[in-house]
Amino acid sequence: MEKETLMEIGTFTALVLTLLIFSFLYKENPFYRFAEYLLVGISVGYYLVIICRNTIYPLVIDKLFVQGELLVLVPTALGCLMFVRLKKKWAYLSRLPLALMIGFGAGISIPAMLQARILKQMSASMQSLLTVNGVVILIGVTSTIAYFYFSKRQEGMFGRFTQLGTYFLMVFFGATFGYTVMSRISLLIGRLEFVLRDAFGIIS
């Protein structure tokens, strides 16, 4: 089949699926559910193909059978042990690769997160108090953290201070909601551009 014909079939399929998904806006219906299940099925299938072609082939098959690196057998065996969970009698063996993964994950991520998410962020929030930004950041950070301090009843001066923290939180929620609206409308624009330009050729 020619490339152009294939492209036309692809565009038509995408148009139909877009309309099926949009039909949910009217009400839940079997056409929408068909498109939804199709998406889930295709995503899983695609993931399996990519994993086999782009990960298992170069990292296991090529290394083991083409380059003869026998050391690859160790992680491969550990990976295979994950599947013994399917048999109750041998399920305990899967704890070994799981323990390794959890240990490796915790060991790697705890210091990295401490450094990147806490220490660096703390140092960035310590700014000169001679600037308006510095003062706003100081009040915002301390009052918001104070709001999440639950060992003291939030009343009196402390209560008023923590309430200030909720105002900072609301500004954050408002900004996030605004960005979310922008994001969702962008997705709608993208889809409508596809329908109007690629499918129907109404716009250039």
Binding site: Q121, A124, A175, T176, Y179, T180, M182, R184, S186
Partner: peptide, 26 residues
Amino acid sequence: LTAVMATSYYPYTESGQLVGMVGGLK
């Protein structure tokens, strides 16, 4: 990145951990 993620990354740009970001269609 998508606009919906932008607010999460402002702290990283302010601290210099990210050089900058281009958020959403805008």
